[in-house]
Design a protein around this nucleic acid. Structure first.
Ligand code: SF4
Ligand code: SF4
Lengths: 144, 144
DNA sequence: CTAAATAAGATATGAATTATCTTTATTATT
DNA sequence: AATAATAAAGATAATTCATATCTTATTTAG
């Protein structure tokens, strides 16, 4: 019941990118240094982010990464799902038929409710929300 | 970002127990059969639940498990934490000093908020809530 | 054309999850 | 009392996942 280190790094790496002037090409080395994360691992993570399409990658000298989507359109839910895979609190919540008990399970409805609440919360924040130095006061109201 | 199979089994096993007349001694074999879960795995899980103190165990013929707490006092959060360990969405949310970035991290507050919401939701349901056959209508109002 | 810089891809390690197998304790039966 | 049956406790195993590092390929600069 937690996000991975990789997702934490990914989010903060993207926030770092979003803080740079629009269009800046960012290197993993810089991103890693500025987010206090292992560069080699970050490299792998940004490779995955690039494959997903939310950022573009350029190989070779003067290569690096740029946004391919507006930071305000990249939700935290999206980033976590790219890195950790779909958010599925319990196997039944996305695909009811994935559990043969789902038809007469007392508990199913709870997981479905909590899943909805969680994904709603994660969708309510975007990378752009954290890309200001005015810490805290740019955050959306805490979801109940 | 999910609960383990073990927690799912534990919750449903305890719900099955709560459906029996108060004081009934339940066997893993029965619990497993009635919850459609692997008995050997369930045995391990109930061993852990017993160690936590929420149920009592009796070894040998006519042994088994009984509640040592009222089902209405056993929250889903408690069960998940016994089986999966503490719910910690991101390392900073419980112990801020566990991350050296926490002092100037833009994202920390989001995780703290979502953690609070999630644990509140998981605490709002108890085993007793699911121990009726009137499916669904005994559930607490979905937390926002 | 060579060297440097950079991401992409392959490989490795350790921990966690998901179990099963074996042992021990208790009770019932002979 | 000895033995067999029953049930949980404890030990072990297989697989998957998280968290990386190491090597290769690509591009640009000099
Ligand atoms: S909560 Fe019920 S429906 Fe969902 S996975 Fe568990 S048993 Fe299946
Ligand atoms: S969100 Fe910020 S404070 Fe929390 S673990 Fe990640 S870097 Fe540390």
């Amino acid at each position: 019941m937690n996000i991975s280190r990789a997702s934490d790094y990914a989010i903060r790496g993207l926030v770092y990118m979003a803080k740079q002037p629009a269009g800046t090409v960012c290197y993993v080395k810089d991103i890693a240094k500025n987010t206090n994360s292992p560069a080699s691992f970050m490299s792998k993570i940004f490779q995955t982010l690039a494959k997903s399409g939310i950022i573009d990658s350029f190989i070779g000298t003067k290569g690096g990464f740029t946004f391919n989507a507006r930071p305000e359109d990249i939700t935290i839910k999206k980033v976590v799902e790219i890195i950790d895979g779909p958010i599925v609190l319990n196997r039944c919540v996305v695909n009811k038929s994935s559990c043969q008990n789902a038809g007469n399970c007392d508990v199913h409805f709870m997981w479905a409710d909590i899943q909805k609440m969680l994904t709603k919360a994660l969708s309510s924040y975007s990378i752009a929300d954290f890309a200001t130095d005015k810490k805290g006061n740019m955050l959306p109201e805490a979801v109940q």
